[in-house]
Nucleic acid binder design. Structure first.
Length: 312
DNA sequence: ATGACGACGTCTCGTCGA
């Protein structure tokens, strides 16, 4: 199962590029940010023709988020973060797709800082942190994907020198991101590439793409039950190299999250366990002890199996 | 300190992004 996040910087201007990418890479789920279009301008029919169902939360000119799913329409579970009644920006949308809960977010940029925009960024971040805790604690398989507008460390940028005053590198921004991770989330790209420079954004200025002067600001965070299912991750850099490209590249993860298979195995194991108990009924105490030991060994060997949840 | 580039709307410049 491939899940991607892509800040497309204008869905109308980028539609041919988006369709081309979907066609070539076939993500099962795609989180989009910066639609820069009102709800009425969302290209639902064109995406349907490309094989994707969608939910979206648009806004004139700015922001805007959407979740696409191949061959199905995502089941929307939320739009906007809790506590944001006065917030008019379209920056969060969430859906269930095949038992996985997907949060698609576009965190405020925050420039210039200091100032009201940076304050808004930190406020929004606090609301995300609070809500993310409840998601994580639920034990449900969750992926929080999007444009976080945070360069987590100096290793996540070609050279921090000319960005030191930028909102993306501020200590406050980084501390918020670190606090989010401390809840237990796995930063999938960093997990997959612990020692490589990985970029997801190259600005249009100063030949930054041509010189690979990038930033890593698009992140996919995995909850405890999803993290063991991570098989691969990457950045579709070729998209950034196309003519008329967004300044971000699609960033993706590959998960082996077959909940149905996990359920089948659980049923099989339960049946086997019951059979073992019945054959050893003359020595119930010993049988229970053996079963318990076996269970403990299995859990230690494969925590992923234990933590997988049934889709709701 | 500014601007480089690109999208969008108010529409040919101003505002915003990162």
């Amino acid at each position: 199962m491939k899940l991607a996040t892509f800040n497309i910087n204008g869905i109308r201007s980028r539609l041919p590029s988006l369709i081309n990418w979907l066609d070539k890479e076939q993500p099962d789920i795609a989180c989009l940010q910066e639609l820069k279009a009102p709800d009425s301008a969302f290209p639902e029919a064109e995406l349907q023709d490309a094989g994707y169902g969608a939910i979206w939360h648009g806004q004139t000119s700015w922001n805007g988020v959407a979740i696409l799913a191949k061959g199905t329409k995502p089941t929307e579970t939320r739009r906007g973060l809790p506590g944001g009644d006065a917030d008019t920006h379209s920056r969060y949308i969430e859906a269930a797709v095949n038992g996985l809960l997907v949060g698609c977010l576009y965190l405020p940029n925050g420039n210039p800082q200091p100032g009201p925009k940076f304050d808004y960024k930190l406020e929004w971040f606090e609301r995300l942190i609070a809500y993310a805790q409840t998601l994580f604690d639920s034990g449900h398989p969750v992926v929080l994907a999007g444009d976080y507008n945070v360069v987590p460390t100096d290793f996540d940028i070609y050279n921090p020198r000319s960005w030191l005053k930028d909102a993306l590198l501020q200590t406050e921004s980084r501390e918020c991101y670190a606090r989010l991770l401390e809840q237990g989330w796995t930063d999938a790209l960093r997990k997959r590439f612990p020692e490589d420079k990985v970029f997801t954004f190259w600005d249009y200025f100063r030949r930054h793409w041509e010189t690979n002067s990038g930033l890593r600001i698009d992140h996919l965070l995995l909850s405890a039950s999803v993290a063991p299912a991570l098989r691969d991750a990457g950045v579709d850099k070729w998209v950034r190299g196309e003519a008329h490209a967004s300044d971000h590249a699609p960033t993706w993860i590959e998960l082996k999250l077959d909940t149905r298979k996990a359920n089948d195995e659980a049923v099989k194991n339960a049946a086997k366990s019951a059979a073992t108990r019945s054959t050893r009924s003359p020595q119930p105490a010993k049988a229970a002890k053996t079963a318990k030991a076996a269970k403990t060994a299995k859990t230690a060997k494969s925590p992923a199996t234990k933590s997988r949840k049934t889709p709701s």
